[in-house]
Amino acid sequence: MKLLLCLTFVAAAQAAIVPAVDASGHFHPTIPNDTQPEGKNHTINGVLTYVSLPKGEFDPTTAVLFLTDVFGLPNLDNLLLADQWAAAGFQTYAPDYLNGDALPPDGNVTAWAVNHGEAQTTPPLLAVIKALKDQGIKQLAATGYCFGGLYITRLVQNNTITVGTMAHPSNLNVPTDFQLMKEVSHIPIEINNAQLDTGFTPALAEETDTVMGDGQYKPGYFRRQFDGVGHGFAVTANASDPVAVAAKQGAFDTSLAWIKAHLK
């Protein structure tokens, strides 16, 4: 845990190259979704956590850690996406590492971020990870979206998880974070990015490739770009837009295949 915090402060000292995208930069459905989440909220090591379990048999020693975007557990789409991971056969845990203070759909992410730095959000995340490992989880796959992408990066840098994926990450330092990853990590990582993202732009994605691609990152690296969609596409899609719907499903399918390929 100390190593994770140490790397956090080192990274924080660098200029933030990938900006957080404000709430207005995300797609927010205007038609209510009547689908009910299938998981339940539990308190794990003092941290509220949404837990979604497969309906059939599953490996009790393997789990998916789901790190939400800034809208956190109040966002139904995050819960339904966690359920999708459970439906794929993994016990899935989405900790409230936002400490009960998710960004409202009309919130200002710049003001909100003041109280949601790594110093505030890392401790609850580590508390849940410790509890999961204490209860017998031996393989922990982690997937993070937007805000969660930074924490996937930290967990990979610290070799805390078994395999990681992220979609349209924010708050990363490119290329510094990936140079550090290449130097110290042995965890495979996959990234889904959006052509129209104003945060992790295609240019930054390509800069990441210059560090990680072409076999440079020995543990395994893959990036897939989805055209015609913007930031947040892997979490929420406009149901009337077939491109957006296909991109969201494609990001999930790509992440799922990556995780399955790197679990024992």
Results as ranks from 00 to 15, higher is better:
L5T: 09
V10E: 14
Q14G: 13
A16H: 06
D22P: 01
A23T: 01
S24P: 08
H26I: 06
H28T: 15
I31N: 12
H42D: 15
Y50H: 05
V51I: 04
S52E: 10
L53K: 08
K55Y: 04
E57V: 14
A63L: 03
L65P: 08
L65F: 03
L65T: 02
F71W: 09
D83H: 05
D83P: 13
D83L: 03
Q84R: 15
F90W: 05
F90E: 01
Y97I: 07
V109A: 00
E118L: 10
A119I: 11
V128A: 07
D134E: 13
I137W: 01
G148T: 03
G149M: 02
L150M: 07
T153N: 07
T153Y: 07
L155H: 03
V156Y: 03
V156S: 07
N158Q: 10
H168Q: 06
P169F: 00
S170H: 01
K182P: 04
S185G: 12
P188C: 05
Q195K: 08
D197T: 04
A203Q: 08
A203W: 00
T210M: 00
M212F: 00
K218T: 14
G220N: 03
Y221Q: 04
V235D: 09
S240Q: 15
A244F: 12
A244M: 11
A247G: 12
A251L: 08
T254S: 09
L256D: 04
I259K: 01
K260P: 02
K264Y: 05
